[in-house]
Amino acid sequence: MNPAPGLFQVPWQDYLPALVDGLLKSLGYTAAGFVGAAAVGLAVALLRISSRRLLRIPAAIYTELFKNVPLLAIIFITYFGLASVGLRLDAFQAGTLSLVIFYGAYLSEIFRAALLGVHAGQQEAGQALGLGPVVTFTGIIFPQALRLALPGTGTMLVDLLKSTSLLVVISAAELMSQAQLIASETFRALEVYVVISAIYFVVCYPLSQLVLRLERRVQAGAPLSLRRYRRLAHARALLAAAETKPYSEVKP
């Protein structure tokens, strides 16, 4: 019995290109799925806080429906189901659509809570300053809601990345699909899936930490845009200049 060579017998070197390709595809699904889900989530959240029932009700139905259906079922429906009625989506389209629909529902809940979490006085202060509804939203409400939504949104981002592994059922060529191929070729299920899990961890953990850091920075009021960064720098410079003025005025 020789335990050392027994541990890793899969020729990982040979599979490296496939793994890299799979990982990049997983990240591609994550990016496309998350951007789409955030857009859908924001739109649905805005509809849900609307004063019009006609807008509120369909949005609420959307959220409740897709929050209470398994993602796997949504993937099957968009890939196999729609194909059977003539709407043929490829794996990337169906996979991304599924992620957008599913996570859009969750993000709409997070965004709605965040928008409602901004104190009503903020809207009032904007109004009293003569700001229109659009500026009040983009300049006052949204940035504050973003701060409130960030923790939940970050969790969803990492969750979405992990959920791309479900796309193995439509052979989406992402990381888990590659893992399945390797396992079937090598008959080393334990080793393969432990290594694949490690890869997910190595990607997801830093991402979580990154989100956490972003969260702290935003919480501390750090500028997220270059324009605001410059504005604050300018203010700092003017304040510093004002402080040194009395001395410079003494000079000839």
């Binding site: 903020q122 009293a128 300053l129 003569g130 006052i140 504050q144």
Partner: peptide
């Protein structure tokens, strides 16, 4: 409303902005 300034009991400053940005916002956007 630009001609009528209002000060509230609970201030309602914009918490995501510094003091100076609070005073700048409506000047720039309004």
């Amino acid at each position: 409303r630009q001609r009528v300034g209002m000060v509230f009991q609970r201030f309602y400053l914009f918490p995501h902005l510094t003091a100076v940005e609070n005073v700048m916002l409506a000047q720039m956007k309004g």
